[in-house]
Amino acid sequence: MAMAALALPRAERAIRVVGLVTATVRVGLDRGVTLVRCRADDIALMEVEPDTLTPVSSGHELAIARALVDERRSFIRPLRFDAGRDAVLPDFVLR
């Protein structure tokens, strides 16, 4: 979903994509000139609802998140790292 969204012009995207890049950076001198070399080691992309940056993992979750935001509902989005391995998490918790 993230790659498909990034392929669209920005004005046509229904979601935003947040990225995290880990990189190796090397700085050195070559004949008195400072050279910076960078290499991306790993890239992770995450789809988020555009207004609140709430993570979503499908078009269905995006539709629910948009509806909650439009209705000005207070909610939280439980994330997998917040719970044990076997826990079943709701998509959204209304407050």
Rank of each mutant, 00 (worst) to 15 (best):
M1R: 14
A5Q: 15
A5S: 15
A5T: 10
A7H: 05
L8I: 06
L8M: 15
P9S: 10
R10V: 15
A11L: 12
A11D: 14
E12V: 08
E12F: 03
A14L: 12
A14M: 01
A14N: 06
A14H: 02
I15C: 13
I15A: 15
R16M: 09
V17Y: 03
V17K: 12
V18R: 15
L20C: 03
V21C: 13
T22M: 08
T22L: 07
T24P: 00
R26V: 07
R26I: 04
G28M: 08
L29G: 00
D30M: 03
D30G: 01
L35T: 10
R37E: 08
C38L: 11
C38G: 11
C38E: 14
A40Y: 01
D41N: 13
D42F: 01
D42G: 02
A44M: 10
A44S: 11
A44E: 10
M46T: 09
E47Q: 10
V48W: 13
V48S: 10
E49C: 08
E49N: 09
T54W: 04
T54K: 02
S57Y: 11
S57I: 07
S57K: 11
G59N: 15
G59R: 15
E61M: 08
I64K: 08
A65Y: 03
R66A: 04
A67N: 06
L68D: 02
L68F: 08
V69H: 13
E71P: 00
R72A: 15
R72M: 05
R73W: 00
R73T: 01
I76M: 10
I76L: 12
F81V: 11
F81H: 14
F81E: 11
D82C: 12
D82F: 11
G84R: 15
A87C: 02
V88F: 11
L89G: 13
L89D: 14
L89H: 11
P90D: 02
P90G: 04
D91E: 06
F92L: 02
L94R: 04
